[in-house]
Simulated assay, not measured.
Amino acid sequence: MNRAFNFGAGPATIPTEVLEEAQKELLDFKGSGISIMEASHRSKLYEEVHNGAIALMRELYEIPDDYEVMFLQGGASLQFAMIPMNLAMGGKIQYANTGSWSKKAIKEVKVQNLDLEIVASSEETAFDRIPEDITFDDDADYAYITSNNTIYGTQYKTYPSTKAPLVVDASSDIFSYPVDWSKVDMLFAGAQKNAGPSGVTIVIAKKELLNRVKDSVPTILRYTTHAENNSLYNTPPTFGIYLLNLTMEWIKKQGGIKAVQKMNEEKAALLYDAIDNSNGFYTGHAQKDSRSLMNVSFNIKDKNAELEAELIKRTEESGMIGLKGHRSIGGLRASIYNAMSIDGIKALVELMEKFAAEKQ
Protein backbone atom coordinates (compact mmCIF):
# COMPACT_ATOMS: atom_id res chain seq x y z
CA MET A 1 0.00 0.00 0.00
CA ASN A 2 1.27 3.46 -0.92
CA ARG A 3 0.38 6.12 1.64
CA ALA A 4 -0.72 9.42 0.12
CA PHE A 5 0.88 12.66 1.17
CA ASN A 6 -2.08 14.23 2.97
CA PHE A 7 -1.95 18.03 2.90
CA GLY A 8 -5.52 18.36 4.19
CA ALA A 9 -6.29 21.05 6.78
CA GLY A 10 -7.93 18.62 9.19
CA PRO A 11 -8.62 15.97 10.14
CA ALA A 12 -5.02 15.81 9.09
CA THR A 13 -2.21 13.38 8.52
CA ILE A 14 -1.24 11.18 11.47
CA PRO A 15 2.28 9.71 11.82
CA THR A 16 2.42 6.38 9.99
CA GLU A 17 4.07 4.61 12.90
CA VAL A 18 1.26 5.77 15.19
CA LEU A 19 -1.30 4.21 12.86
CA GLU A 20 0.78 1.05 12.55
CA GLU A 21 1.00 0.71 16.34
CA ALA A 22 -2.76 1.21 16.65
CA GLN A 23 -3.30 -1.38 13.91
CA LYS A 24 -1.10 -3.86 15.72
CA GLU A 25 -2.92 -3.36 19.00
CA LEU A 26 -6.42 -2.97 17.60
CA LEU A 27 -7.78 -6.41 18.51
CA ASP A 28 -5.65 -7.15 21.56
CA PHE A 29 -4.38 -4.24 23.62
CA LYS A 30 -1.43 -5.18 25.85
CA GLY A 31 -2.50 -8.81 26.00
CA SER A 32 -5.91 -7.96 27.46
CA GLY A 33 -7.84 -9.82 24.78
CA ILE A 34 -9.86 -6.69 23.92
CA SER A 35 -9.37 -3.49 21.99
CA ILE A 36 -8.75 -0.32 23.98
CA MET A 37 -11.97 0.88 22.30
CA GLU A 38 -13.83 -1.79 24.26
CA ALA A 39 -12.22 -1.06 27.63
CA SER A 40 -14.23 0.70 30.31
CA HIS A 41 -13.11 4.25 30.90
CA ARG A 42 -13.12 3.33 34.61
CA SER A 43 -10.78 0.35 34.11
CA LYS A 44 -7.11 0.21 35.08
CA LEU A 45 -6.33 -0.73 31.47
CA TYR A 46 -7.67 2.54 30.13
CA GLU A 47 -6.61 4.60 33.15
CA GLU A 48 -2.94 3.99 32.29
CA VAL A 49 -3.51 5.30 28.76
CA HIS A 50 -5.47 8.34 29.96
CA ASN A 51 -3.03 9.37 32.67
CA GLY A 52 -0.07 8.50 30.48
CA ALA A 53 -1.28 10.90 27.79
CA ILE A 54 -1.65 13.71 30.32
CA ALA A 55 1.79 13.01 31.79
CA LEU A 56 3.42 13.04 28.35
CA MET A 57 1.69 16.29 27.44
CA ARG A 58 2.94 17.88 30.64
CA GLU A 59 6.46 16.65 29.99
CA LEU A 60 6.70 17.62 26.33
CA TYR A 61 4.93 20.98 26.66
CA GLU A 62 6.55 21.76 30.03
CA ILE A 63 3.15 22.57 31.50
CA PRO A 64 3.46 24.08 35.00
CA ASP A 65 1.90 22.28 37.96
CA ASP A 66 -0.62 25.05 38.57
CA TYR A 67 -2.27 24.34 35.20
CA GLU A 68 -5.03 21.78 34.71
CA VAL A 69 -4.97 19.49 31.66
CA MET A 70 -8.37 18.34 30.44
CA PHE A 71 -9.80 16.23 27.65
CA LEU A 72 -13.20 17.48 26.52
CA GLN A 73 -15.53 16.94 23.58
CA GLY A 74 -17.47 19.15 21.16
CA GLY A 75 -14.37 20.32 19.32
CA ALA A 76 -12.75 23.71 19.67
CA SER A 77 -16.09 25.16 18.54
CA LEU A 78 -17.73 24.28 21.87
CA GLN A 79 -14.91 26.13 23.61
CA PHE A 80 -15.99 29.30 21.82
CA ALA A 81 -19.09 29.20 24.03
CA MET A 82 -17.64 27.56 27.15
CA ILE A 83 -14.87 30.13 27.57
CA PRO A 84 -17.14 33.16 28.05
CA MET A 85 -19.57 31.04 30.09
CA ASN A 86 -16.80 30.13 32.52
CA LEU A 87 -14.46 33.12 32.47
CA ALA A 88 -16.65 36.21 32.05
CA MET A 89 -17.02 38.18 35.28
CA GLY A 90 -19.23 41.05 34.15
CA GLY A 91 -16.42 43.21 32.78
CA LYS A 92 -15.23 43.67 29.23
CA ILE A 93 -13.89 40.83 27.11
CA GLN A 94 -11.36 41.59 24.37
CA TYR A 95 -10.65 39.63 21.19
CA ALA A 96 -8.22 39.95 18.29
CA ASN A 97 -9.94 39.05 15.02
CA THR A 98 -7.54 37.30 12.63
CA GLY A 99 -9.78 34.96 10.65
CA SER A 100 -12.83 32.74 10.37
CA TRP A 101 -12.31 30.91 13.66
CA SER A 102 -11.82 34.15 15.59
CA LYS A 103 -15.06 35.41 14.05
CA LYS A 104 -16.92 32.28 15.15
CA ALA A 105 -15.57 32.67 18.68
CA ILE A 106 -16.61 36.32 18.71
CA LYS A 107 -20.11 35.33 17.60
CA GLU A 108 -20.51 33.10 20.66
CA VAL A 109 -19.61 35.98 22.98
CA LYS A 110 -22.23 38.13 21.28
CA VAL A 111 -24.83 35.38 21.69
CA GLN A 112 -24.26 35.59 25.46
CA ASN A 113 -24.75 39.38 25.32
CA LEU A 114 -21.45 40.13 27.05
CA ASP A 115 -19.38 43.31 26.94
CA LEU A 116 -17.17 42.56 23.93
CA GLU A 117 -14.47 44.67 22.32
CA ILE A 118 -12.46 43.81 19.19
CA VAL A 119 -9.05 45.34 19.86
CA ALA A 120 -7.43 44.42 16.52
CA SER A 121 -8.47 42.99 13.16
CA SER A 122 -6.95 42.21 9.78
CA GLU A 123 -10.30 41.63 8.10
CA GLU A 124 -9.98 44.72 5.91
CA THR A 125 -6.99 43.11 4.12
CA ALA A 126 -8.58 39.65 3.80
CA PHE A 127 -6.84 38.41 6.96
CA ASP A 128 -3.45 38.41 5.25
CA ARG A 129 -1.53 39.31 8.42
CA ILE A 130 -1.42 39.31 12.19
CA PRO A 131 -2.13 42.90 13.31
CA GLU A 132 0.83 44.72 14.80
CA ASP A 133 0.99 45.97 18.39
CA ILE A 134 -2.08 44.16 19.71
CA THR A 135 -2.85 45.73 23.09
CA PHE A 136 -5.29 44.34 25.62
CA ASP A 137 -6.49 46.26 28.67
CA ASP A 138 -5.08 45.10 31.98
CA ASP A 139 -8.53 44.98 33.55
CA ALA A 140 -10.24 42.91 30.84
CA ASP A 141 -11.93 39.74 32.11
CA TYR A 142 -9.80 37.93 29.58
CA ALA A 143 -8.00 38.49 26.26
CA TYR A 144 -8.35 36.10 23.32
CA ILE A 145 -6.30 35.21 20.24
CA THR A 146 -6.21 32.47 17.61
CA SER A 147 -2.55 31.54 17.31
CA ASN A 148 -2.68 30.11 13.78
CA ASN A 149 -5.22 30.69 11.03
CA THR A 150 -5.69 27.65 8.82
CA ILE A 151 -7.59 29.30 5.97
CA TYR A 152 -5.40 32.36 5.51
CA GLY A 153 -2.03 30.89 6.49
CA THR A 154 -1.11 33.41 9.18
CA GLN A 155 0.43 32.77 12.59
CA TYR A 156 1.55 34.73 15.64
CA LYS A 157 5.33 34.69 16.00
CA THR A 158 5.00 35.66 19.66
CA TYR A 159 1.95 35.94 21.89
CA PRO A 160 0.90 39.42 23.02
CA SER A 161 1.90 40.33 26.56
CA THR A 162 -1.02 41.26 28.80
CA LYS A 163 -1.92 41.40 32.48
CA ALA A 164 -5.40 40.20 31.60
CA PRO A 165 -5.67 36.40 31.38
CA LEU A 166 -4.71 35.38 27.84
CA VAL A 167 -6.75 32.64 26.15
CA VAL A 168 -5.21 31.02 23.07
CA ASP A 169 -7.00 28.94 20.46
CA ALA A 170 -4.07 26.78 19.32
CA SER A 171 -6.13 24.25 17.38
CA SER A 172 -3.91 24.27 14.31
CA ASP A 173 -0.45 24.71 15.83
CA ILE A 174 -0.58 22.93 19.19
CA PHE A 175 2.59 20.93 19.97
CA SER A 176 4.45 22.52 17.06
CA TYR A 177 6.62 24.90 19.11
CA PRO A 178 7.38 25.51 22.82
CA VAL A 179 4.88 27.68 24.69
CA ASP A 180 5.86 30.45 27.10
CA TRP A 181 3.35 29.66 29.85
CA SER A 182 4.17 32.90 31.67
CA LYS A 183 2.13 34.61 28.92
CA VAL A 184 -0.75 32.12 28.67
CA ASP A 185 -3.57 31.41 31.12
CA MET A 186 -5.60 29.06 28.94
CA LEU A 187 -4.74 27.21 25.73
CA PHE A 188 -7.12 24.91 23.90
CA ALA A 189 -7.20 22.90 20.70
CA GLY A 190 -9.03 20.29 18.73
CA ALA A 191 -6.67 17.34 18.44
CA GLN A 192 -7.13 16.68 14.74
CA LYS A 193 -4.23 18.71 13.36
CA ASN A 194 -1.17 17.83 15.45
CA ALA A 195 -2.31 15.71 18.39
CA GLY A 196 -4.28 12.80 16.96
CA PRO A 197 -7.73 12.19 15.49
CA SER A 198 -10.86 14.30 15.64
CA GLY A 199 -13.08 13.91 18.69
CA VAL A 200 -10.68 15.00 21.43
CA THR A 201 -10.46 18.61 22.62
CA ILE A 202 -7.50 19.61 24.77
CA VAL A 203 -7.87 22.38 27.35
CA ILE A 204 -4.88 23.53 29.42
CA ALA A 205 -5.72 26.22 31.96
CA LYS A 206 -4.53 27.84 35.16
CA LYS A 207 -6.38 26.22 38.02
CA GLU A 208 -7.23 29.53 39.67
CA LEU A 209 -8.89 30.74 36.48
CA LEU A 210 -11.39 27.88 36.56
CA ASN A 211 -12.86 29.00 39.87
CA ARG A 212 -14.59 31.96 38.22
CA VAL A 213 -17.46 29.81 37.00
CA LYS A 214 -20.97 30.84 38.09
CA ASP A 215 -23.59 28.48 39.53
CA SER A 216 -25.83 29.22 36.55
CA VAL A 217 -23.51 27.37 34.15
CA PRO A 218 -24.74 23.81 33.43
CA THR A 219 -22.67 21.16 35.19
CA ILE A 220 -21.32 19.51 32.03
CA LEU A 221 -20.19 22.91 30.69
CA ARG A 222 -18.13 23.85 33.74
CA TYR A 223 -14.37 23.37 33.54
CA THR A 224 -14.35 22.60 37.26
CA THR A 225 -16.55 19.57 36.63
CA HIS A 226 -13.97 18.04 34.31
CA ALA A 227 -10.93 19.16 36.31
CA GLU A 228 -12.27 17.65 39.52
CA ASN A 229 -12.97 14.35 37.76
CA ASN A 230 -9.74 14.00 35.78
CA SER A 231 -11.76 14.40 32.55
CA LEU A 232 -13.76 11.30 33.47
CA TYR A 233 -17.01 12.93 34.57
CA ASN A 234 -18.65 11.38 31.53
CA THR A 235 -17.27 8.84 29.04
CA PRO A 236 -14.32 10.45 27.27
CA PRO A 237 -13.35 9.70 23.64
CA THR A 238 -11.17 6.81 24.76
CA PHE A 239 -9.82 5.65 21.41
CA GLY A 240 -8.97 9.21 20.41
CA ILE A 241 -7.07 9.72 23.67
CA TYR A 242 -5.25 6.43 23.07
CA LEU A 243 -4.13 7.72 19.65
CA LEU A 244 -3.22 11.07 21.20
CA ASN A 245 -1.02 9.21 23.68
CA LEU A 246 0.74 7.40 20.81
CA THR A 247 1.20 10.75 19.05
CA MET A 248 2.82 12.22 22.16
CA GLU A 249 5.17 9.21 22.24
CA TRP A 250 5.99 9.88 18.58
CA ILE A 251 6.82 13.53 19.32
CA LYS A 252 9.10 12.41 22.12
CA LYS A 253 10.89 10.03 19.73
CA GLN A 254 11.47 12.92 17.31
CA GLY A 255 13.41 14.69 20.07
CA GLY A 256 10.56 16.66 21.62
CA ILE A 257 8.79 19.91 20.78
CA LYS A 258 11.93 21.89 19.92
CA ALA A 259 13.05 19.24 17.45
CA VAL A 260 9.58 19.20 15.88
CA GLN A 261 9.68 23.01 15.63
CA LYS A 262 13.00 22.85 13.77
CA MET A 263 11.59 20.31 11.31
CA ASN A 264 8.51 22.50 10.79
CA GLU A 265 10.70 25.52 10.04
CA GLU A 266 12.71 23.53 7.49
CA LYS A 267 9.59 22.21 5.77
CA ALA A 268 7.95 25.63 5.57
CA ALA A 269 11.13 27.24 4.27
CA LEU A 270 11.28 24.78 1.36
CA LEU A 271 7.70 25.51 0.34
CA TYR A 272 7.84 29.29 0.78
CA ASP A 273 11.11 29.40 -1.17
CA ALA A 274 9.40 27.61 -4.06
CA ILE A 275 6.64 30.23 -4.01
CA ASP A 276 8.99 33.20 -3.68
CA ASN A 277 11.38 31.98 -6.38
CA SER A 278 8.71 31.23 -8.99
CA ASN A 279 9.09 34.58 -10.77
CA GLY A 280 5.60 35.55 -9.68
CA PHE A 281 3.89 32.40 -10.94
CA TYR A 282 2.89 31.58 -7.36
CA THR A 283 1.89 34.20 -4.79
CA GLY A 284 1.37 33.59 -1.09
CA HIS A 285 -1.75 34.95 0.61
CA ALA A 286 -0.11 35.87 3.92
CA GLN A 287 2.28 38.76 4.34
CA LYS A 288 5.80 37.42 4.87
CA ASP A 289 6.15 38.47 8.50
CA SER A 290 2.88 36.67 9.38
CA ARG A 291 3.44 33.43 7.47
CA SER A 292 2.31 30.24 9.12
CA LEU A 293 4.52 27.19 9.59
CA MET A 294 1.41 25.01 9.52
CA ASN A 295 -0.74 26.20 6.60
CA VAL A 296 0.63 27.64 3.37
CA SER A 297 -2.12 29.34 1.33
CA PHE A 298 -1.18 30.48 -2.16
CA ASN A 299 -2.48 31.25 -5.64
CA ILE A 300 -1.27 30.97 -9.19
CA LYS A 301 -0.60 34.31 -10.93
CA ASP A 302 -3.72 36.43 -11.42
CA LYS A 303 -5.65 33.83 -9.38
CA ASN A 304 -6.01 31.72 -12.50
CA ALA A 305 -8.69 29.26 -11.38
CA GLU A 306 -8.22 27.07 -14.45
CA LEU A 307 -4.51 26.58 -13.82
CA GLU A 308 -5.11 26.09 -10.10
CA ALA A 309 -7.61 23.32 -10.82
CA GLU A 310 -5.15 21.71 -13.23
CA LEU A 311 -2.37 21.77 -10.64
CA ILE A 312 -4.65 20.27 -7.99
CA LYS A 313 -5.53 17.48 -10.44
CA ARG A 314 -1.83 16.87 -11.06
CA THR A 315 -1.08 16.67 -7.35
CA GLU A 316 -3.84 14.12 -6.84
CA GLU A 317 -2.53 12.01 -9.71
CA SER A 318 0.88 12.12 -8.03
CA GLY A 319 -0.38 10.86 -4.66
CA MET A 320 -0.83 14.22 -2.96
CA ILE A 321 -4.26 15.07 -1.58
CA GLY A 322 -6.01 17.93 0.23
CA LEU A 323 -4.37 20.82 -1.61
CA LYS A 324 -7.49 22.67 -2.70
CA GLY A 325 -7.71 26.05 -0.99
CA HIS A 326 -10.60 27.06 1.22
CA ARG A 327 -13.61 28.30 -0.76
CA SER A 328 -13.38 31.75 0.86
CA ILE A 329 -10.04 32.56 -0.80
CA GLY A 330 -9.65 29.80 -3.40
CA GLY A 331 -6.26 28.81 -4.73
CA LEU A 332 -4.23 26.13 -3.02
CA ARG A 333 -3.39 25.35 0.58
CA ALA A 334 -0.74 22.99 1.86
CA SER A 335 -1.23 22.05 5.50
CA ILE A 336 2.15 20.86 6.71
CA TYR A 337 1.54 19.84 10.30
CA ASN A 338 4.01 17.93 12.46
CA ALA A 339 3.34 14.57 10.81
CA MET A 340 3.92 15.79 7.25
CA SER A 341 7.31 14.45 6.20
CA ILE A 342 10.06 16.41 4.49
CA ASP A 343 9.66 13.95 1.61
CA GLY A 344 6.08 15.13 1.14
CA ILE A 345 7.24 18.75 0.93
CA LYS A 346 9.98 17.89 -1.55
CA ALA A 347 7.52 15.99 -3.75
CA LEU A 348 5.12 18.95 -3.78
CA VAL A 349 7.87 21.49 -4.49
CA GLU A 350 9.21 19.40 -7.35
CA LEU A 351 5.78 19.17 -8.94
CA MET A 352 5.10 22.89 -8.43
CA GLU A 353 8.38 23.86 -10.05
CA LYS A 354 7.79 21.54 -12.99
CA PHE A 355 4.26 22.88 -13.46
CA ALA A 356 5.42 26.49 -13.34
CA ALA A 357 8.14 25.80 -15.93
CA GLU A 358 5.55 24.28 -18.28
CA LYS A 359 3.01 27.09 -17.93
CA GLN A 360 5.14 30.24 -17.80
Results as ranks from 00 to 15, higher is better:
N299G: 07
N295M: 12
V109A: 08
N51G: 15
G74C: 09
I257E: 01
K288F: 09
L244M: 15
V111K: 14
Q192R: 13
K214Y: 05
A205W: 02
A120P: 04
I174W: 07
L209W: 06
I312R: 09
F136E: 01
L244K: 08
V119D: 00
L19W: 06
K207I: 08
T98P: 03
E208R: 12
L60A: 03
K92D: 05
E124T: 13
Q94Y: 01
E108L: 12
D215V: 09
K288I: 12
E208G: 10
M186N: 04
E132P: 05
V109Y: 08
Y67V: 04
L348G: 00
D66L: 06
D141I: 06
D173K: 06
L332K: 00
G90K: 07
E266F: 10
L332R: 04
P84C: 00
S32G: 10
I220A: 14
G33M: 09
T158K: 12
A268I: 01
L351F: 08
D138R: 08
A105H: 05
F29P: 05
A81C: 10
E208T: 12
G10I: 02
E17F: 09
L271M: 09
Y242W: 11
D133C: 10
I220Q: 12
E108G: 09
G196W: 04
M37F: 13
V260W: 03
L166R: 02
Y142I: 07
L244H: 11
E310F: 03
Q94M: 10
P236H: 06
T238V: 15
V203F: 00
S43W: 02
G74H: 01
K193I: 11
S43N: 05
L56Q: 13
Q287G: 09
M340K: 03
R58C: 05
L19S: 01
G255V: 08
V69N: 02
P197D: 05
V296H: 07
M70F: 11
L243I: 14
G190A: 06
F175M: 14
N245G: 06
E108D: 14
S172H: 14
E108S: 13
I151V: 15
Q23F: 14
S122C: 13
L332D: 03
P236R: 04
A356C: 13
Y272E: 05
N234S: 15
I251S: 10
L27T: 12
G325W: 00
G255R: 00
K104S: 12
I300D: 02
Q287L: 13
K267M: 10
N264Y: 04
Y177E: 05
P237L: 01
S292K: 02
I345T: 00
Y61T: 07
R333K: 12
A274F: 01
D302P: 05
K359H: 15
L209T: 05
Y242I: 02
D276H: 13
G284I: 10
K183D: 08
E25S: 13
E38A: 13
I257D: 02
G240T: 07
R42F: 15
D66N: 15
